[in-house]
Amino acid sequence: MKHRQDILFKNSLGLLSWAFIAVLVAMILSLLHMSGLAWEKIGFSFFTTSHWNPVKHQYGVAAFAWATLVTSLLALLISTPLSLAVAVSVTELMKKRAGRVFGFFVDMLAAIPSVVYGLWGIFVLVPLMRTQVQPWLFENLGWIGIFSEVPYGVGILTASIVLAIMILPTMSSLLREVFQTIPLTQKEAALGLGATKTEMIYLSVVKSSKSSIVAAMVLGLARALGETMAVTMVIGNRNDWMKSIFSPAQTMASLIANEYVEATHDLHLSALALVGVTLLMISSVIQLVFRAIYARGRK
């Protein structure tokens, strides 16, 4: 016989889970509802054009979508090797206690509010980029298209660096947990064969964690795509196609954050909601793609 208590417990938790899903669906529906007007007026060209001028009622999301993808992927490109390095150092290279302390500090990075990252970006990273990094790259590598913008300090790359630091703790702590569960016997298999420590880390740790590395990237990317505050503070907020990775630009999230306060016109508000829908779609597609890669890697 089942206990009444168990039934009650199970049912109330079940109800709660369904309530969550209901709220989520309601949110998506209301977002779709709000964006209806823009969809009616602008149609599919909303996704294919990049003119964004509320005064002339011109709304196109392409440039922002592109900037969002580039900043997030660039952040991932920076953060993936870094988080691998952090996870490997903490689990394999440092003494146990030092590793724990170091890991703790990296985890603390996750507790710093987004706006503080933004401030750090404005006061430290932006001047550094403007006076040191960009002039040098511009002088020496300016002939390569992606470095061709004159130095502003704010822009795509600056936002990517801030994002990379923000997603580092998420990614590295996942990898760290995976690496910690790798059995000692697997490491000794490599050492016993005459592998150096570096070779051992590659053979026994990294090579057997490929799918977890993809999983960490999914998490990092998900966070990077939606991150708003810090990005808004350092990306330069220019409603235009990026020319290089230094261009001031606008991501979908930063656009919404910048404009919703002043958006008085119904169509403008509705267009912003449609930007939200676009962001949601892009994140979902990317999630699905990475999940598919992950699932294939697990097999």
């Binding site: 016997t185 697997q186 000794e188």
Partner: peptide, 8 residues
């Protein structure tokens, strides 16, 4: 080793 440990 005691436990077979082929590389996954």
């Amino acid at each position: 080793f005691q436990k077979a440990n082929p590389f996954p």
